[in-house]
Design a protein around this nucleic acid. Structure first.
Lengths: 213, 213
DNA sequence: ACCCAATTTAAACAGCTGTTTGAAATGTAC
DNA sequence: GTACATTTCAAACAGCTGTTTAAATTGGGT
């Protein structure tokens, strides 16, 4: 019993590390099992297939994060007057940072995995997300719509996807960016530093005045 | 002579189509050669390797685009007073749209390829870019710095990379986004429509007020 | 028509991929 | 300690990858 969990967790931790670093399809099961120091066949024995392993890796974080977010969205929606956009965005920070409890460097790992999930296997994660957490995401969209009543829904759709791109790309390449920032500006930035730099950028972008068409 | 070019071009056009749609590493040479209706070995004969084929695909557009951009940047830098940020960003539009001349749907194809290049083979394209077009990119950064004198250089660094992420992610998944927009908002958007929606978003994000730290 | 170079072709190469198999080992309950 | 279920393991599977080879074909210049 303890041995079984031992193996499963060894696989999960090796997998998420390699997935975040190199991407899902570029990481082979043999790389994972040799880093985890387990037998190759144990991935298929414990998880069924590589695809299901990927889902298990993501679910470990999503199962913690999404209920927390849902709770926060619901709380903000219940307040009488519409919230400020920056407030709605800031709601992400604490639940994300709490992923450190799932695992050391959990926040960075999860955000990198999210980035990989969207760019690696195109469209797959988007479907998975909408299917499992559509309700929660709808609440957030509603929150943004309330905070930007001057923007038509279609414009908010586009700008939220622009923002998703900003986050996902930044996180997928956050290691490289942190290295460049350190070299060029002698600046040491941690993951919450990146998040706190992102929020004003995203808030300004989402709430930007409409272009004169 | 005409036959040789015929084959090379058939390969390039099949390759860029598949690369844009599925990504570089997920596209096999056999997919390319069977779509192009040429022999498998002709890729290695004409281009040397898959890696060099990828570079050739990108260079076909970059060789047209980057000199045009460099010219525009130089022109704007020569003007006496600093330009508005939206002006600096708008400079990209026309050269990008002119890629339609390289090939039908050239703008979309190139931007998708750019997205793939950054997300697919992590870090590789970034190096390639800085190495070949670093001078041009520096001019653009200077332009942005002049238009946002209140922002420290390091903040501009981060925000420009946020913007790169926005563009690259949006373009890599632009087909999916256009489909969703059509289904949910009965909205027909073309590539220049996406670009024109991006500019106010990016301009507002880059010029966002500094967060109170 | 001949020659030489450029190009195309089918076949095979070694290496990697995810997955399956059946036997060996381990753990657990009686 | 014996029986049973769980887990590990080495080996092999078929299928795909990019690349190379050497022979066959094609092209243009003389």
């Amino acid at each position: 019993m303890s041995t079984k969990q031992q193996t499963q967790i060894r696989i999960l931790e090796a997998a998420e590390h390699l997935f975040a670093e190199t991407g899902f399809s570029a990481t082979s099961l043999r790389q994972i099992t040799s880093l985890a120091e387990v037998n190759l066949a144990s991935v298929n024995y414990h998880f069924g297939s590589k695809k299901e392993l990927i889902q298990a890796v993501l679910q470990r974080y999503l199962a913690v994060l999404m209920p927390r977010l849902d709770q926060e969205f619901t709380r903000l929606l219940a307040s009488q007057q519409p919230v400020k956009l920056e407030t709605a965005l800031s709601v992400f920070v604490e639940p994300l940072v709490e992923l450190e409890r799932v695992r050391r460097n959990g926040t960075t790992l999860f955000l990198q995995l999210l980035g990989r999930g969207y760019t690696d296997v195109q469209g797959h994660l988007r479907w998975f997300f909408n299917h499992h957490y559509g309700r929660t995401l709808d609440k957030f969209v509603l929150l943004v719509q309330q905070s930007c009543p001057q923007l038509p829904a279609s414009e908010i759709f586009w700008r939220l996807h622009f923002s998703l791109g900003t986050i996902v790309f930044t996180m997928a390449s956050s290691e490289a960016l942190k290295d460049i920032a350190a070299a060029d500006f002698h600046e040491v930035v941690e993951i919450d530093g990146v998040i706190n730099r992102l929020i004003p950028y995203l808030a300004a972008g989402i709430a930007a005045p409409l272009a004169a068409s």
